[in-house]
Design a protein around this nucleic acid. Structure first.
Lengths: 142, 142
DNA sequence: ATTATTACTTTCAATATGCAAGCAAAAAAG
DNA sequence: CTTTTTTGCTTGCATATTGAAAGTAATAAT
């Protein structure tokens, strides 16, 4: 795990103190696109995160209140991770990063399905996906 | 310096392969707020970046086409760094990160001047600041 | 001619990453 | 039941990155 103190009062700097690494926002991305995920689901993502990194990032994001861990119904081994409201509010930033990467780094032939929707109507997409995530939050008591 | 290959085709992942660290976006932030900066200016930022990290990040961001280095008028030692158009287009993402950090991490009493403007009228702020940066680009030949 | 500034580079200890293997608890299969 | 498998981690270790401090070479100012 990593314990970084605030380098400054700048909100950008403080944000990067939490998720300024190559993995944390990918965990948030997976939760944004799929609502909930198990530990095993994360390990199956395309980028192949190492399990020690995954465990430490899940713990950090939970400590920071960005994700929360729920019991998996009828299974005491598995857990279910989801975005907290604080995590849901990271989605606009994530989408802007995705748009930038799509424009400047990705191959030109066709983009991901969710980005097509974003490009069609960004605010509608954001409202839809954030509402869905937040509804998911109210459903389960934390 | 760091040479990370694309971990996947995901635009978020590819973006983080470039600026997914605790420093790169702070360099972009400083350029966003101040238009141009010298090497020495960056070292004076509140977060106190180490000079070896600064040099490697400036090189990486230049290699990736996010910033560019200009000669400082009438001075052969100094250089002037500015955002390229590709870097200017990172501003919306940076602003979303700033808004998130401001809401969830910063002390409640008063926020930074530029964030007040953002909150008042986000699209106007973005247009203004991005236009200003882009004008700065056309002025100097690359 | 001397000193200061500027933009780095180097050194090296500390920390983080990444891969592979290990492990305990629970679940599923036989 | 009893064995095997799944699941969610933890551990060990080599390599890479970070961060603090000092060094350097070119130019600028005095």
């Amino acid at each position: 795990m990593k314990l970084i103190e605030n380098r400054s009062d700048c909100p950008i700097s403080s944000s990067l103190d939490i998720f300024g690494d190559r993995w944390s926002l990918l965990i948030v991305r997976d939760l944004m696109l799929y609502k909930t995920r198990t530990y095993g689901d994360f390990t199956k993502s395309e980028e192949k995160i190492a399990t020690n990194i995954l465990a430490s990032r899940l713990q950090l994001l939970e400590d920071k209140g960005i994700i929360s861990k729920l019991p998996y119904p009828d299974n005491k081994v598995k857990g279910l991770y989801k975005l907290s409201p604080k995590g849901v509010e990271l989605i606009p930033a994530l989408i802007e990063i995705a748009l930038w990467g799509d424009k400047h780094l990705s191959n030109p032939d066709g983009c991901l399905p969710y980005l097509k929707e974003v490009k069609k109507n960004k605010s509608k997409f954001l409202k839809n996906i954030m509402d869905k995530q937040l509804a998911n939050n109210e459903a389960n008591v934390e």
